[in-house]
Each structure stands twice: as C-alpha cells, then as structure tokens.
C-alpha cells in the first residue's frame, strides 16, 4: 500500500513539469479581458471586447518556454457598447454565433523569450469555425503574492488577424480587413 502510494506520487511528480505552476484566469474578479479593435472607415478605432471566457495556463518564471495556455471564448458575448451593432456582429455576416458557439485559443509553443519575461506565444485560434495558427506577442506585467493569501501572475499580449483568414468576408472597407486583439490575462495559482 505504502509502495503504491509512493509510486503514484512519483508518477504524479514526473508527469507534470517540474516547477510549472497551474493558474486559472481570474474571470470571476474580472482581472482579465479580451479586447479587440478595428479601424472604422480608416478614420478611427472601434473597440470592443468579449465578456465571457475562461481559461487556464501553466507558467514558471524560471522556465517560460514550457508555458502552456488554453482560453475558451463565448463569441456571443461580444460587446461593442452598441446593441444593434452587437446583434449584427453575432449574425451570419460576422461571427455567426448560432452556428459557431465557441471560440478558443490553444497554445502550441513558446519562442523568443524576452528580458522582462515576455515571449512569443504560438497557438491555434478557432474563430467562426476556422482554426488558424497565430502568434501572440506577450509581455509579462508582474507576478507575486496578492493581499488575500493567493499568488498571481499577469500578462498582456496582442496579435492581429485578418478577418478573411477566418472566413469572415463582410466588406467593411479597405481599412478594416484586420482586427487587432488585445489580451490581458491575470491568473490565480491553484
């Protein structure tokens, strides 16, 4: 019995990365946001966000290249602060949320670690039923104990996607073919 427990403990130990900590994205306290911006006619930026998402990641400051992250996004939670526009964005002209009920990002690898703790985060983004590789330029913001007995780490990242790559071909004009995604992620260590 004791031997089995030890074996199990050893297996558990070896099957997880030695020091990587598991974090859950703090969506309950809303210390994370998935924002987007797109040019309006080439004259200004239109910004919005996805209100509902969840995710988890592994991160260890000593071994950032071993980090992994998965984020699930509810595309129907898109919010550009205008109900009629949001209705249009959820329709089959854009996200078609009746048909494509989920969006997600799953990391595949980390490269180009930076001095401040940032890195290039490679992964597959699924949006509008299309899965494409994207690279998110990640900066580490900070890490440490919170005042309530927990431990947190947070990042900011951005990437740019072409709407056409994800099968969204509604014509918003030549200045509005790409969307920039801005991601702010704070994880609470489990």
């Amino acid at each position: 019995m004791k031997k089995t427990m030890l074996t199990l403990a050893a297996m558990a130990f070896t099957s997880t990365p030695a020091l990587a900590a598991d974090y859950i994205i703090d969506n309950k306290g809303a210390h994370a946001s998935i924002n987007f911006k797109i040019q309006h006619l080439g004259y200004s930026w239109l910004t919005g966000r996805f209100n509902n998402f969840d995710g988890e990641f592994s991160y260890d400051a000593d071994e950032p290249l071993k980090s992994t992250i998965t984020v699930n996004i509810d595309p129907a939670s898109i919010d550009s602060n205008h109900a009629e526009r949001d209705k249009h964005l959820r329709s089959d002209d854009f996200l078609h949320v009746d048909k494509f009920k989920t969006a997600k990002f799953v990391s595949t690898k980390i490269s180009d670690p930076k001095d401040g703790g940032g890195f290039d985060l490679h992964g597959n983004l699924t949006l509008h039923g299309v899965t494409k590789p994207v690279i998110i330029d990640v900066d580490k913001v900070g890490e440490g104990k919170d005042p309530w007995g927990g431990y947190r780490v947070g990042f900011a990242g951005d990437t740019k996607i072409a709407l056409k790559d994800f099968g969204i071909d509604y014509d918003l004009g030549p200045a509005s073919t790409h969307v920039e995604l801005e991601l702010h992620i704070e994880g609470v260590r489990q």
């Binding site: 129907a76 602060n81 205008h82 109900a83 009629e84 949001d86 209705k87």
Partner: peptide
C-alpha cells in the same frame, strides 16, 4: 432591439423615445 443598450430611438430627428436597457442577456 434598438433600446437593448439603453439608447433611445430617434424619430426623424424630431423627438426621441427613451430606452430602458436590457431585461435579458443579448435581448437584441
């Protein structure tokens, strides 16, 4: 639909019917 975000409805730039926002999620 049009008042789900609390915006009113402008009637021919003549008068505005006030909006009261959403009762349910994604009301529009």
């Amino acid at each position: 639909i049009s008042t789900a975000d609390g915006r009113g409805i402008e009637v021919f730039d003549w008068f505005t019917v006030p909006g009261f926002g959403s009762v349910i999620e994604n009301q529009e």
